[in-house]
Design a protein around this nucleic acid. Structure first.
Length: 122
DNA sequence: CGTATGACGAGCC
DNA sequence: AGGCTCGCCATAC
């Protein structure tokens, strides 16, 4: 392989790969995706990468929310409704404040908190 | 090429 | 406990 430049996939491609690794019914945050993609601290770049996605993309962009567990799109935006519907369609529940419980749905799972496993025991 | 902006995050009060 | 501001850097014009 040609040394020097990007021996690996492009940054966006790495971001898309990380996002694609999120299973259905789980969510991740921009910051975590950034860290997993090799650019810790650059959460905004992840948001930008998803913004660049095309409508026909198979990347589960809707499984990415901000560190507060909220959809980062404008609540009155069309994208917000789409993302929320897709998440609820996968079983992700929203708080009365439109917040997702990251302790239950965050991917990769966190220890010390019960997960939303299919067994329904928590 | 410089200014403005944005699908974020952490700190400050 | 929560709203506001700054910093980060690629993209748009």
């Amino acid at each position: 392989m040609p040394s020097g430049s990007h021996t690996q996939a492009s940054l966006y491609e790495r971001i898309y790969r990380q996002v694609s690794s999120i299973p259905a019914g789980r969510v991740s945050t921009y910051g975590r995706i950034a860290g997993a993609a090799g650019i810790p601290g650059h959460a905004r770049q992840v948001g930008y990468a998803l913004h660049r996605l095309k409508p026909g993309s198979e990347v589960p962009w809707h499984r990415v929310v901000n560190a507060a567990g909220m959809i980062s799109l404008a609540p009155a935006s069309h994208g917000y409704t789409i993302q929320r519907q897709l998440l609820e369609s996968e079983g992700v529940r929203f708080d009365h404040r439109n917040v997702i419980c990251l302790a239950r749905y965050l991917w990769p799972p966190v220890d010390g908190c019960h997960r939303a496993e299919s067994s329904g025991r928590g």
